[in-house]
Amino acid sequence: MKLSILLIAGCLLSVAALSATQDSTANSSKASKPRDDSASKAAFAEAYKVFMHPRCVNCHPAGDAPLRGEDSRPHTGLRLRRGADGQGVFTLKCTNCHQAKNQEGLHMPPGAPNVLGDGSLDPRTPRWHLPSEKTRMIFQGRTPSQLCRQLQDPDQNGGLKTQQLIHHVTTDPLVLWGWNPGEGRSKPPITHDEFVASVKEWLEKGGSCPK
């Protein structure tokens, strides 16, 4: 019993310490590396190719419903809607069809695992949603300049700071799914590692935006 309490306390302390570290480093990396506008913009241009790929755009639509396919068309005949939390509404919640992993076969629903409170993945529970109504994080139709500024605007990006943004593109199962999209779906034009490296370089060298 005592051992369990100690273990739980230890875990809580670790999480608290990690949070504190993340808070203290948030936005600090911009200052820790020399600003290089040219390199930063070039890195964003590379990452932009991924942001605008259908695997990303389809769940970052300009409208209120998800898109699908390589041509980013509206999601079949279903009258899907974002809903306040981005999870869908009424009988049409995203995870009513999308599971914790891709279903085998062409045109079968893709899926990704949910993230538990400790950051580990739950292989049985799906994670599939749009950004919330409040933080819509639209990619569709955004120019490089618009998207670059939007991604760094705390009012539009859900309050994510630099390190949190990097953490998101590095670990979020929905981001990672882009490179494991299931049968019949194309992958972004660069690897996930290259994408993360581009995002890091863009932000760490100043978060510069094209005009």
Binding site: F90, T95, N96, C97, Q99, A100, H107, P109, R124
Partner: peptide
Amino acid sequence: MAVCGCCTVHLEGDAIRSCVTPVSRVE
């Protein structure tokens, strides 16, 4: 393939498509 809705059941109150829901999810 989760398109027609024939197989709809409730999972914790949500109207899921049972044809594509692995049984492990309902544990």
